[in-house]
Amino acid sequence: MDDAITQGVKTGVILLAHGAPTRVADIPEYLQRIRGGTASSTEVIREITERYEAIGGSSPLLEITQGQAEALERFLNQGEDTFRVYIGMRNWYPLIEEAVQQAKDDGMDRLIALCLAPQFSKWSTERYLNSFNEALGKCNAGDIPVQFIKSWPNQPSLIDAFAERYRAAESDLKAKGHDTFHTVFTVHSIPSAYVEEGIDPYVQEYEKTLNGIRQQVPMEPWHQAYQSQGMIPCPWLEPSVEETLDNIAEEGGKAVLIFPVGFVCDHIEILYDIDIGFREYAEQKGLTLFRTESLNTSPLFIEALAGAVWEHLA
């Protein structure tokens, strides 16, 4: 990276994440934010509350994202004070608007918004872009130069970070006597209409991540699935993880490694959907289910975030 690019210029990097409640008492408000101000039914609130209680009563997403931001700021600055890294959540606190306002108050000369979902989707990522643009308007920050990093599914260090997690899991499974196992890649599902209508490149984005990892760590057999379908009554991208586990069991498989490559830290979709829900489902099918460790604050992942930022400054 050319030193002239950053010399004397204060750059604010805003990490954009979904957000999650840190206590069960906040779940009704959290769900209302997700639904654009519409309150959820008592049944839905109860179901989500039970899930959060099952993982300890709160999500670690904010704490982990703060750790990512602090590590990224150190890595970008390399002992200098050119970059400031902020956190902006779309559905919980600190909100994106708060992050933009803080960056403006700190006198940032330019902003880079980085969505922490590597695979771009019009159904999800574009909402972050819209929320970010709205925040710029509300904060009267429209005169600050901005770049929005919305797609980085095969950023080299990201692939390295995922490959590192896979190798560690593979070694662990073999140490436990599972010389052969099925690998199931997962990302968050989205309504299938977006893909069927040809307006969303999400599947291709997913495949970029998957192919990058498989070039580094060949594996057989492997499967591509979608998880954590929402409560909206519409068709979602398939196959689901449950369908995939059914097929593996029918083929006589015994051990399964879930490899969530659409998520970059532990939160409800990891700690409940996989570690509790899918594990119980797998057991019912006679399968033993494992999971790769989340990236969280992996040094290689922090390098990936920095790489994505630098690539957009060059």
Results as ranks from 00 to 15, higher is better:
T6N: 05
T6Q: 00
Q7Y: 04
G12D: 08
V13N: 07
T22M: 03
G36M: 06
T38P: 02
S41H: 07
T49G: 04
T49L: 05
T49R: 08
R51T: 01
R51V: 01
S59C: 03
L61D: 11
L62H: 12
L62G: 01
T65D: 12
Q68Y: 00
E70T: 08
L72R: 08
F75D: 10
N77S: 03
Q78F: 02
Q78A: 13
T82R: 10
Y86K: 04
N91G: 09
W92P: 00
W92N: 02
Y93L: 03
Y93D: 00
Y93Q: 00
I96Y: 05
I96Q: 07
E98P: 11
A99F: 06
Q101L: 13
K104R: 15
K104L: 05
K104C: 08
K104Q: 14
D106K: 14
M108G: 06
D109R: 00
D109A: 10
D109C: 07
R110G: 00
L111C: 02
L114S: 09
C115T: 14
F120G: 03
W123R: 09
S124W: 03
S124A: 14
T125P: 11
R127E: 14
Y128W: 08
N133C: 12
L136T: 07
K138A: 15
G142I: 05
I144A: 04
P145G: 02
P156E: 10
P156H: 09
I159R: 12
I159S: 13
I159Q: 11
F162H: 14
F162Y: 15
F162A: 02
E164N: 11
Y166S: 07
R167L: 09
D172R: 13
D172A: 13
K176S: 06
K176G: 01
D179L: 02
F181P: 05
V184R: 10
V184K: 11
I190H: 12
P191C: 11
Y194S: 12
V195M: 07
V195S: 13
E196R: 12
G198H: 10
G198M: 09
Y202P: 13
K208D: 10
K208E: 15
I213A: 08
Q216K: 15
P218V: 04
E220G: 03
P221R: 09
H223Y: 15
Q229T: 09
M231K: 12
I232Q: 15
P235K: 02
L237F: 11
E243C: 03
L245E: 07
L245Y: 13
G252I: 00
F259V: 00
F263A: 00
D266Y: 05
I268T: 05
L271H: 03
L271N: 06
Y272N: 08
D275M: 01
D275R: 01
F278M: 14
R279D: 07
R279K: 15
A282K: 08
Q284F: 04
G286S: 07
L287K: 04
L289P: 12
L289H: 07
E293H: 12
S294P: 05
S294W: 05
L295P: 02
L295M: 06
N296I: 01
P299H: 03
A306K: 14
G307Q: 11
W310P: 01
E311D: 14
